[in-house]
Design a protein around this nucleic acid. Structure first.
Lengths: 133, 133
DNA sequence: ATTGACGTTTACGTTAACGTAAACTGATGA
DNA sequence: TCATCAGTTTACGTTAACGTAAACGTCAAT
């Protein structure tokens, strides 16, 4: 038997509210089982939730995140399905690549700037010491 | 004399509407000069606009983008200013690092998945050929 | 003189992604 | 038995980031 999760367990684990999780369900991002009224989340549901949140951190909308995540659950029955799946994966892959370029550019320019600041700080500190002599 | 830009030049270059650019100004992200009523954008304004858009692609809100971009325009006069600036740069740098982790994880898992799909496709195609013999 | 093209301000409208509150339903421990 | 969680549905409220429309200014070209 695999482990299951309640909505409050997941909400505290991922630091989001139950409302958010229910909203994701209403948008078709997760589909937990039910025990009567109560939602029962499987390990698979938990993984999907984690993927949604990661997508959000990367700036994807919920709709975009759903598109991507649903690719991982697509059926691989026929050759045609596999071909279109691979094509869609290629698209998403390009979006990620674009983000990587943006991110790398952001990081390198910030690092360069911080380095210049540190040099300037050393300058200022040494001149302060001179003034004290 | 440095080159300047009209609002429509920038909006078409970056593929956004003038409304968006004016909104960014109202949020304090850009502060173009004026020639009477008309806004005149400098090369510096253009760079800031590009930074805003890059920030958005990476999932930052306009407020977050502003915080980051404003760091690049902070004054380096006193030692104390430089110290707090470096501290803030460290914070932002960590946020970018987190995004890089998320992004790397997304890319590697997607690449792995695509590879499995390609293998499966080769299988299916070979079995199709066998059936044709 | 007027017609566009381009610009402006003001203000209301819209959508995504939830927040919040009300009213209800079991299960469970004192 | 009663209260107290933990969960549920329904529904209205909110915020960021613009869209859209109205009403107006200005300048060059016809």
């Amino acid at each position: 038997m695999e482990r299951t999760y309640s909505i409050s367990e997941l909400s505290s684990e991922f630091d989001i509210t139950p409302r958010t999780i229910r909203y994701y369900e209403s948008e078709g991002l997760i589909s937990p089982d039910r025990a009567g009224q109560k939602r029962i989340y499987s390990a698979r549901d938990r993984v999907r939730l984690a993927l949604v949140l990661r997508g959000k951190r990367l700036g994807f909308s919920l709709a975009e995140a759903k598109e991507i995540i649903d690719l991982y659950a697509a059926s691989h029955g026929e050759v045609g399905q596999l071909r279109t799946l691979l094509a869609k994966l290629g698209e998403k892959r390009e979006m990620l690549e674009q983000k990587r370029k943006d991110l790398d550019a952001s990081i390198t320019s910030m690092d360069r700037y911080a380095e210049r600041c540190r040099e300037r700080l050393v300058e200022l500190e040494s001149s302060t010491r001179e003034a004290a002599e």
